[in-house]
Amino acid sequence: MDPLLVIFGLGVGVLVGLTGIGGGSLMTPLLILVFGVKPVTAIGTDLAYAAITKTVGGYKHWRQRTVDASVCVWMALGSVPAAVGGVYVLQLLESALGDGLDTTLIAALGVTLIVTGLATLVRSIFARRFSAGERSTVEMTARRRLVAVVFGAVVGFVLGVTSAGSGALIAVGLILFFRLTPTRVVGTDVVHAAILLWAAALAHLGAGNVDYGLAAQILVGSVPGVWIGSHLSVRVPTGALRLTLALVLCGGGLGLLAKAGLAVPTAAIALAPITAAVVVATGLLRARRARLGTLETSPHPPRAVESRG
């Protein structure tokens, strides 16, 4: 048991509980950069632990009726076979490139993280604009079915190769293409991600890319982390959390690109977590001021309890 691995699992779990996304996008680069795990093994192990975590969350959302089953099914028709195909392509690349695959895979993961971070950033900044015309369910016309299948296939293939993007990319697609309400976006995203992750995880399992002991240690930290993050989510503004995660993902992507040999300035990598910390601190401060302002303007402020001698 590696205590540091459990701590990182706890931290990633907290972020997932706070924002609903970021599990695969954060744990895979941590396994590669901090623990020196081979990229292919890091991807397969990450998908295995994430499949279990998302299944628990997906069951809860299904019981709460916050899932658009039609959209979920049509996206899965494209994403599941594409994810399995992505794993197969990864195996072919490993046979063809050998050790050279590690550098290529790290660079591809870095680019995926930056794209995911930018997608999260767009969702955070333009959340109010996207809210126009939101609906709880969508009539799946022939055009929307095609969009769902194609979009699912793109995300599924990326997930099968890199393990990243299943949360943020799908969420942005559900907002842009289907205009679902926030609760439906989260519920549909989580259930579809669970289906997609199991498909990709089983494919990696068959390819021998999953480290069971590693996955178990991550789960020891991530399961309580998700609970803690869910508890804290009511205290930190959602916009600040999404902006923070976007910055962390972009910083992690830049770090991976630097490891792959690209000339990325160290200052650019360091700026992401520093800015993220400032955003969280500012969000907490504003939330505290808002609570105090509400108490001060309340028509029935709490009365002090008289002391009895």
Rank of each mutant, 00 (worst) to 15 (best):
Q91K: 11
L180R: 02
V155Y: 04
T244M: 12
T162M: 04
V186K: 02
L121M: 14
W74Q: 10
I228K: 06
M1I: 14
F151R: 00
F151V: 14
L105E: 03
Q91Y: 05
A194F: 05
L93C: 10
L18T: 00
T112N: 07
V6F: 09
L256F: 04
F35R: 07
L93F: 11
D68V: 08
L295Q: 13
A42T: 09
A215L: 06
T244D: 00
R63T: 10
G213A: 12
H204K: 07
I170Y: 00
V186E: 00
L247V: 09
V248P: 01
V172D: 00
T294K: 13
V67Y: 06
R242C: 00
V111E: 05
P39M: 06
E94M: 07
T28W: 04
V155T: 10
A203W: 01
I218V: 13
L77R: 01
A194V: 05
V6M: 14
V278I: 15
A69K: 12
A51D: 05
A51Q: 07
L4W: 14
P237M: 13
D46H: 06
P302K: 09
A127K: 11
S25G: 12
A194H: 04
L205C: 03
G117V: 01
I218A: 03
A201Y: 01
L214S: 03
R235E: 07
E134Q: 12
S233C: 10
G13F: 01
F126P: 06
L249I: 04
L285Q: 12
Y88N: 06
S131V: 02
G221T: 04
T112K: 08
G78F: 05
A171W: 01
M75N: 05
V305Q: 12
I21G: 03
V236L: 15
R242H: 09
V236G: 06
V264F: 09
R128M: 08
I52C: 13
L159D: 10
A48G: 02
M75G: 05
K54Q: 13
S95W: 08
G9P: 08
D99K: 11
L262K: 03
G221A: 07
L159P: 01
A290N: 11
A168V: 15
R143I: 12
V149E: 04
A304G: 08
L254S: 02
M27S: 04
V122C: 08
G160Q: 04
L92R: 13
C250F: 10
G165T: 09
G255D: 08
P182I: 01
V122M: 11
A148M: 02
V16M: 13
V226L: 12
V154N: 02
V87N: 06
F178C: 07
L33V: 11
A276H: 04
R235K: 13
S298T: 14
V305H: 11
L101Y: 06
G221Q: 04
A127V: 11
G22C: 08
S25L: 14
R143A: 14
T275C: 14
I7C: 13
